[in-house]
């Protein structure tokens, strides 16, 4: 029953899913701690791609160095983003403000504003067209496995996703920083009363989450050879859908949902016009919300 055609579509779907998962991890981490969507995550992803691209055109370092430069740029972008868009809304430390949904949700707008400013600024500096990437850096060299074709980028992205997922689980469960991240995400006020420096914890979360977002940006940019200011928008939406499907704050849930999204997109192209493939992905989201209102993996109370 598995002819090579279906196998090839499955392989494509898996690699698409991995790409969405890569972005969803950082996105979900930040949501888990603050309980608000960080609209600027897509721009952090783009900044990572552009930082890597500039490094490549400036002095052509090896790929691993490019990835670390993107990671650093993302970490810095995350730090600045937190300082500019999120921390001003936490400046009142009385209990009413800390519990206020309005204060928290105002950061939706401020992060959206930051994302628009960052995107338009990049458009002004670089222009909105695809940037030309040194073709030698692209991670799209074909590898044939029997009847199906994958590329070396698939393996790299798979490895990076696994490392991120594993590393993050280790960090959250075993390290003192992870403990404070989990404490803040569980009950920020309670964590504060217990003497955890919530401000610092939130900054660290942003730095880690944004570094991962930026790493995703440069990897996907090199995977497709397409780096442009608006590149973060479409994967941002997919990462958001994966996060909601996975139960909002479960990182493994988001990764699995991202893979489901990728597979459903590539397989649906076989049965209907490709313009409808997004509908299938969002259809899954609707079904999940109707039958599992807490998301596929959201039933457990353990956040992050």
């Amino acid at each position: 029953m598995f002819d090579p055609y279906i196998l090839q579509q499955l392989a494509i779907g898996l690699s698409l899913g991995m790409i969405y998962a890569l972005m969803a991890i950082g996105f979900t981490l930040i949501f888990g701690v603050l309980n608000v969507v960080n609209f600027a995550h897509g721009e952090v992803y783009t900044i990572g791609a552009f930082a890597g691209l500039m490094a490549i055109s400036a002095f052509g370092p090896p790929l691993l160095v490019v990835l670390f430069i993107a990671l650093a740029a993302g970490a810095f972008a995350g730090f600045s983003l937190e300082r500019l868009a999120f921390s001003p809304f936490r400046r009142f430390s009385d209990e009413a403000s800390l519990k206020s949904r309005a204060m928290r949700e105002a950061t939706l707008m401020s992060s959206l504003a930051m994302s628009i400013i960052a995107r338009e600024a990049m458009e002004m500096i670089f222009g909105s067209q695809f940037q030309s990437v040194d073709l030698a850096y692209l991670i799209n060299k074909p590898i044939n496995i029997g009847p199906i074709t994958i590329v070396n980028g698939d393996l790299i992205i798979f490895a990076v996703t696994l490392i991120m997922l594993g590393g993050l689980q280790w960090l959250l469960k075993k390290s003192p920083i992870g403990l404070s991240i989990r404490a803040v995400s569980n009950n920020a006020l309670g964590a504060k009363y217990c003497g955890i420096n919530t401000d610092r914890t939130i900054i660290i979360t942003f730095v880690i989450g944004s570094g991962m977002g930026a790493l995703a940006g440069i990897l996907v940019g090199l995977y497709y050879g397409a780096i442009f200011p608006a590149m973060g928008f479409a994967p941002g939406i997919k990462a958001f859908v994966a996060m909601v499907m996975g139960g909002l704050s479960s990182i493994p849930g988001a990764v699995i949902s991202a893979i489901i999204l990728g597979l459903s997109e590539s397989l649906s192209t076989s049965f209907m016009s490709s313009v409808w493939s997004d509908m299938v992905a969002y259809g899954f989201l609707l079904l999940t919300l109707i039958f599992f209102p807490q998301g596929l993996f959201g039933a457990r109370r353990d956040r992050v």
């Binding site: 055609y5 090839q8 579509q9 494509i12 779907g13 698409l16 497709y224 397409a226 479409a234 997109e265 590539s266 192209t269 076989s270 016009s273 490709s274 313009v275 493939s277 997004d278």
Partner: peptide, 16 residues
């Protein structure tokens, strides 16, 4: 086949 402008991944369509 028609695709949405700005589609990043054509591989499913090419396979088809």
């Amino acid at each position: 086949e028609f695709f949405n402008r700005g589609l990043a991944d054509f591989r499913s369509i090419i396979t088809k």
